[in-house]
């Protein structure tokens, strides 16, 4: 199997503009910033949630709390993934009780990650509401999970992979569609 790049879905500028729009949408649909908090899913949801919070602060002057969740312990495929994944800490320094939470992730695919993230959040308390914000929705859901805030919807096939590169983690910044092809 070889991985080939098929096309670029978003450029760095487009990612920036998309996040600007998502930040405004989140505040608008929430009717303000009261109780609002963002939860970034490790790994690439983390820089995305931080950027959204910064944007919201820039236009509203309000600093909304941001947390990080690691879903490793809540995965439903631990016995099938081969080497046991390394567990990371959640970093949520505020109480989630009665919060209006927005989970932030890069790609929405099967929905299993988001199910796991919600399980993790429930272990920490009882949020008032949980919504989901993703940069890319690529379809192929296996669970009844939908996002409230979507950067871009992309039609994909099963063999394709959506690769999100963020400068905080990958050094470069773009979203590409790659495909696995037989040698």
């Amino acid at each position: 199997m070889r991985v080939v790049e098929k096309r670029q879905l978003l450029s760095a500028d487009e990612i920036g503009r998309t996040l600007q729009r998502l930040a405004h949408e989140i505040v608008e649909k929430s009717g303000g910033t009261d109780d609002l908090a963002l939860i970034g899913v490790r790994r690439r949801g983390v820089p995305l949630s931080e950027r959204l919070a910064k944007t919201i602060q820039n236009f509203s002057g309000v600093q909304i709390p941001v947390g990080t969740i690691d879903i490793t312990l809540y995965r439903d495929d631990l016995s099938t993934v081969g080497p046991q994944p390394v567990v990371h800490s959640n970093e949520i320094s505020f109480s989630v009780d009665n919060r209006d939470l927005v989970i932030v992730d890069d790609v929405l695919y099967t929905g299993r990650t988001i199910r796991a993230a919600m399980n993790g959040l429930f272990d920490l308390g009882r949020p008032k509401r949980i919504r989901l914000c993703v940069l890319i929705d690529r379809g192929h859901r296996e669970l009844p999970v939908e996002a409230s805030f979507i950067g871009s919807k992309v039609q994909t096939s099963d063999t394709e992979i959506v690769e999100v590169h963020l400068k905080e983690i990958d050094g470069d910044e773009r979203v590409v569609l790659v495909d696995r092809v037989a040698e």
């Binding site: 695919y109 099967t110 990650t113």
Partner: peptide, 8 residues
């Protein structure tokens, strides 16, 4: 690796 291929 990009996690949509490994995590989901």
């Amino acid at each position: 690796k990009p996690k949509d291929s490994t995590k989901d």
